[in-house]
Amino acid sequence: MVETNKPLPAPEQTDKGLPQIGSPENSVRIGDQLIEIKPTKLKYQRNRTAAFYRMLELYPLADILAMEAGAFGDDRDGDKALMDWLIAVTDNEQLILDHYNELDTGVIEQLLQIFRRVNRMDEKEQKQKNLLTARKG
């Protein structure tokens, strides 16, 4: 019987990246962290912070940030209202505090789009329109 010596495998191991967690279409990068946006918690809906998305749909971000205290029926100015909404969307206060000044309009718009999708806003608004159309017809 012929014996052959098989060489030992190399001791080095290659690092393999971690698998993608969550849904890539619902993920956004804030700072160096990729976070997944999930449906908004009830506590943010109950205190009406989540409803601020309507303002982001209607007004340019520069106009919102220029709004004075009292513009939203409480003591918040546009800057504070936006920060509160971002905290509600991400459910991560420290992340927003650490990176608030680095965010840009593109990230805010991306968060708004994901927020609407994960909370099924578009779907429910379409159902409302269909019901109103059916009543008129």
Rank of each mutant, 00 (worst) to 15 (best):
K16C: 06
K16N: 10
L18N: 13
L18G: 09
Q20Y: 07
I21N: 10
G22H: 10
G22I: 09
G22R: 09
G22M: 08
S23F: 06
S23T: 13
P24C: 08
P24E: 15
P24D: 15
P24R: 12
E25S: 13
N26V: 03
S27D: 06
V28T: 10
R29L: 01
G31E: 04
G31R: 08
D32N: 15
D32P: 00
D32W: 05
Q33H: 07
L34W: 07
L34I: 13
I35M: 12
E36I: 04
I37P: 04
I37T: 08
K38G: 01
K41M: 05
Y44L: 04
Y44A: 05
Y44F: 15
Q45S: 03
R46P: 03
R46L: 15
R46C: 05
N47P: 02
R48Q: 14
A50T: 02
A50H: 07
A50E: 10
A50N: 04
F52H: 10
Y53M: 08
R54H: 08
M55K: 06
M55P: 00
E57I: 02
Y59L: 15
P60T: 06
P60S: 12
L61C: 10
L61W: 05
D63N: 12
I64E: 05
I64G: 06
L65R: 12
E68K: 13
E68I: 00
A69K: 09
A69W: 00
A69L: 00
G70Y: 00
G70D: 03
A71F: 01
A71K: 02
A71L: 01
G73F: 00
D74N: 14
D74H: 00
